[in-house]
Every structure is written in structure tokens, then in C-alpha cells.
Design a protein around this nucleic acid. Structure first.
Lengths: 218, 218
DNA sequence: TAGATTGTTAATCGATTAACAATC
DNA sequence: TAGATTGTTAATCGATTAACAATC
């Protein structure tokens, strides 16, 4: 029987799929039940995979011949992903991308709130909390992270500065880093880095495109 | 012997690692040679994996006891990834993220240039090509893509509109899509979608973080 | 030569998918 | 009951890693 209290073993790949299920389920929230084969068909996945993934997060499982209760499943996934208790994060590097993320409302939906940003450029720093998020100079980083017990850091600095910033974050108590710089970051084993690398994505696209155009010529 | 003309079989995972090698190699470009074990150590990978990956892109291979010629390797990877001949792309959805990407210079380094953007909001459209990138209304999408033979599309619209925009792109001749909306996109088999999904990344971070904090309490 | 490195073949590992019994 | 669905165990597939001969 499914157990509400223990965190089930879930593969990293399955974890990456959970937000897809969530976004899909929210689109069809007005219905009551959904079956694994139906989800699989709509999302282009295998139905056994869907059942396995859902088994890892579902509090009650599905019912044969009926499927899973949609609203319950949404709650279960949100709970599993920690979207129910908002976590605070800080951002380093207020360039174009950093600024866009800083003012992006959507993070709240994922259980993350950026409470402050940091940058070396004095022109960007501001200490008034009016409607904008505050931007501090780098030397305030450690103190703020430690006092506010922040565990999540977002890096949007140029790749050349990324490792230095990363070291700064780690020594300030950050345990999870979302890395938008293309650089590889070395961190202690207790810290996790998730790379959001546009370059890698483009590499896949570009390679596919070339093969497509080549095939056309054969 | 390595062959310069055929595209070698390379796994998707290896393809995703290539930009990391590239960024690493550029950092140490002043040196002449680099060995696979050294790269593996610095990037936290396995040395056999590094050799296999490099074998797929290297034009001359490495030399026993010496390693790979750094500058040559950089050229090989850039060539393999198609960074040498810039490809044109269009972007749909000029919100905060879309706007940031539109004015982001860095795409050029990855062989991509965004030539125009599209949005339904008339307030955002502008037809003057001064220093800004032009933003057109959606009804101009198909004509421009077909006339300019654009093959790459970037989607930065809310997830609710993503599939509609996606269909639009596909019928306009787009073959490769970089999808920043959280939505799952259904496309014909000849079109590739690369999902740049912040939600998925955050899911991994959040789950890790919870486990870390749990372990601390045990 | 000795030792470090390359490149390849074989073994291992993890994730996906197929097969099937249990359920409603 | 018949048929659709769940959940689990076994087989398959792809990617990673270990072992090793070849090279300089």
C-alpha cells in the first residue's frame, strides 16, 4: 500500500518528468479521473513508465478500470516537489538574463521565491525595497544568506566568474545551485548543481537540424 | 583512422556534454595539449567517457602519452556543433524572458542569431530596424519564416498558448524548437523539440534539498 | 625500457519497456 | 462475465565504466 510519510525511491529521470505531468493535469483539472494509458498517449510516453512514475508520488494509487483522481494527483505531485512550502532563494548576476529571472513572477508556482539579488556593479545595486526586489553588492552575500538561512542560489553571471561566485555561495551555506552560466562548477558532495544550459540545448537542435537537411539531400 | 567527412554516431548524452568540453577547453586555450584523464578530473567525469566523446568529434584523435591538441579540439567541437555557420532563428512571445533572450548577445557564440520576434500584443510590435530587433505581429510569422528559410524557433509564450504557437511554427517550416514554456508539445516526427524547463530543474533541486535537510535531522 | 596515455572490446549499471497476474 | 486498467516482476535497451592491448 502506498505510504504517505516516506519519500519513495525515484530516478532522476522520473523527477524531471513530474513537472510535465503536473502541467498536463492542471490543463484537464475539470475532469475527475485520468488513466495512465491516456496520459502516456497525450504526453508521448510509455504507459508503464507513467504508472511507475505516479506510483512513486501518489498517496492512494489508481483504481483499476478507472485510473487516478486528477485533483488528488495534482496535490500529491505538488507536495512531492515541495511546491507547497515556498523556499527562498537568492540570485547572483543582474545582467539581462538575471534581471529577467529576478522580475519573473512564475517562480512562485514552483515553490521558489527570489528574495534578493547580488551584483558587483554599483550602478545596479539599490537598497530601497519599494516594489522592486533589492539588489545588493557582493560583500553582503554571506551575511544575508546566513542570517536568512537561504539554501538555494541562482547563478546568472558570465561563465568566467561562475566558479568564484559558486565558491562564495557554498561558503555562505547554499546547498542547491541553479546554474545558468555555461561553466562547469566544482562543488562539495553535499551541494547539488542543476545546469540550465542553453548551449547544450542548442547543440542538440543544431545537430538534429544538420542531419535533417542532409537526409533531404539524399 | 578518424574521418573528417562523416558524422559519427554520438549519443544524446554525449552531445549535451560537448558544450562543457568547449567551455573548459577555451579556458585553458593558452596551453598546447590536454589529456583525457586531466579533463575528466577537472570536469568530474570518467576518463573513458571523455575519450569516447572526443573520439566522436576529433579529426585527428589524441596522441598517447601527450593527449589532444587543445586548439584543434576546440575547432573540431565548434564545427561539430555547427557554431561555424550561424543559423537564423525566430522567437515567439516577447514577455520578460522572451525579451531578455531577444536582446541577449550570447546566442551568436552558439551559432544562432535571432533575426526577428513575434507577439500578439500590438504594444510590443515595432517595424523599425534601428538598433533593436524587429517585433512583428503573429500574422506575419509564416510569410517571414518561409521567405527567409528559417528552421529554428524559440517559444517563450505562456504554456497555455504554447501548442498553438508550436503548430504555427511547424506549418511555417520550422524544424527545431527550443521550448521555454513548461508545456509538452506534440510535433510531427521530423521536428525536434528541446525543452528548457526551469520547473524540472527546480524539481530536482527541491527534492535534493529536502533529502539533505532530512539527513541532517537523523 | 618504463610509464602514461590512447582507443576499443567486454562487463556493469540504470532506465525503459514488455509480460502478466490482480482488480474492479 | 468480459474488458480495461493497475501494479509488479522480468527482459531489453542504452549509456557508463572497467579491463586491456597498442602506442609513443
Amino acid at each position: 500500500m502506498p505510504n504517505e510519510n516516506t519519500i519513495k525511491n525515484i530516478s532522476k529521470q522520473a523527477l524531471l518528468r513530474l513537472p510535465y505531468y503536473l502541467s498536463y493535469l492542471k490543463k484537464i483539472e475539470e475532469n475527475e479521473f485520468i488513466s495512465a494509458p491516456r496520459i502516456a498517449l497525450d504526453l508521448g510516453l510509455n504507459d508503464v513508465q507513467v504508472r511507475k512514475d505516479l506510483a512513486a508520488v501518489s498517496s492512494c494509487g489508481g483504481k483499476p478500470k478507472i485510473g487516478y483522481e486528477i485533483r488528488l494527483l495534482i496535490c500529491d505531485i505538488e507536495k512531492f516537489l515541495g511546491y507547497d512550502n515556498v523556499d527562498e532563494a537568492i540570485l547572483v548576476g543582474v545582467g539581462k538574463l538575471g534581471s529577467a529571472l529576478l522580475h519573473y513572477d512564475g517562480f512562485k508556482d514552483y515553490g521558489i521565491e527570489i528574495v534578493a539579488a547580488f551584483d558587483n556593479d554599483e550602478f545596479l545595486t539599490n537598497n530601497d525595497f519599494k516594489d522592486k526586489k533589492p539588489v545588493f553588492s557582493m560583500d553582503k552575500l554571506k551575511d544575508l544568506c546566513q542570517r536568512m538561512k537561504i539554501h538555494i542560489g541562482i547563478i546568472t553571471v558570465p561563465s568566467i566568474n561562475a566558479q568564484e561566485v559558486c565558491n562564495n555561495l557554498v561558503s555562505s551555506g547554499i546547498l542547491a545551485i541553479l546554474n545558468f552560466s555555461g561553466a562547469h562548477l566544482s562543488v562539495p558532495p553535499n551541494v547539488i548543481v542543476q545546469n540550465e544550459n542553453i548551449a547544450s540545448s542548442l547543440a542538440v537542435l543544431s545537430s538534429h537540424l544538420r542531419k535533417s537537411l542532409e537526409d533531404q539531400n539524399n
